[in-house]
């Protein structure tokens, strides 16, 4: 049962296509698990289609564009086979113990195990999926059952999406599909539940700063893996 959903503002920006892509990635992954948000987005897209329909039409002559389009149509026509192939791509991706959400398959072609994990402590690993130039850092964190995650505060917005397992902090317990959005002012001490390891998708708008004793050692490493710090 999912308890933590993106806000209605976030869902609206997502349906409208105005949400930054890194955040859309988290919403999309949440939505794969969440019927409720699927319904919400369906309606928000309907609203979009009415606004789109009423957007007005510029009076510019389009004959030239139309002629060009139809002369080139052959080149753009996909063969039946191509269409089939394209449609089947995403289905064949079940490796190892876990199902990879389809939104993440552009970054994870095989399994979580095949990613390059950077071990930050005996129980805490991080794998960078993608660093947007001048934008967000998208990573997976993997924490052993029962382990504490390092205490940290953010210097920017952080979205966490639970992919596998569960963790808790002062405010609650978070399970598969839960979407947690924290701003810079939040300082938390997450602990992974004892029954299983926990894998989360995290999107950081700015590097996190660890505040614990051991975290002070980690900070330079984290910085090195964030685009802002390369300058």
């Amino acid at each position: 049962m999912i308890h933590y959903h993106p806000s209605i503002e976030t869902l609206t920006d997502y349906a409208a296509g105005s949400l930054p892509l890194a955040h859309s990635l988290c919403v999309s992954t949440h939505v794969e698990h969440c019927q409720e948000c699927q319904q919400q987005i369906r309606k928000l897209e309907m609203l979009g289609s009415h606004l789109f329909d009423q957007a007005g039409t510029h009076s510019r002559q389009l004959n030239h564009l139309k002629d060009r389009f139809f002369t080139q149509l052959e080149e753009h026509t996909l063969e039946e086979n191509d269409i089939e192939k394209h449609a089947q791509e995403p289905n064949s991706n079940h490796w190892g113990d876990y199902n990879i959400p389809s939104s993440l398959r552009q970054f994870i072609t095989k399994s979580y195990d095949d990613l390059t994990w950077l071990r930050l402590s005996p129980s805490f690993k991080i794998a960078t999926l993608y660093n947007e130039e001048g934008g967000a850092q998208i990573a997976l964190t993997r924490v052993k059952a029962g382990a504490h995650m390092p205490t940290h505060t953010h210097t920017g917005n952080e979205i966490t999406l639970v992919l596998e397992g569960a963790f808790s902090d002062e405010s609650g317990v978070y399970r598969q599909g839960d979407f947690i959005n924290r701003d810079a002012s939040h300082k938390h001490k997450p602990i992974v539940t004892k029954d299983a390891e926990c894998i989360c998708l995290t999107v950081l708008d700015a590097p996190i700063e660890f505040t614990g004793w051991f975290a002070r050692l980690l900070n330079p490493i984290i910085r090195r893996y964030h685009p802002y710090s390369r300058a």
Binding site: L21, S24, R42
Partner: peptide
């Protein structure tokens, strides 16, 4: 600022 995040993967199942 180009991004490699492919939107094709992000909305496909919703509709």
């Amino acid at each position: 600022h180009q991004s490699d995040i492919d939107p094709e993967y992000l909305w496909r199942n919703v509709v």
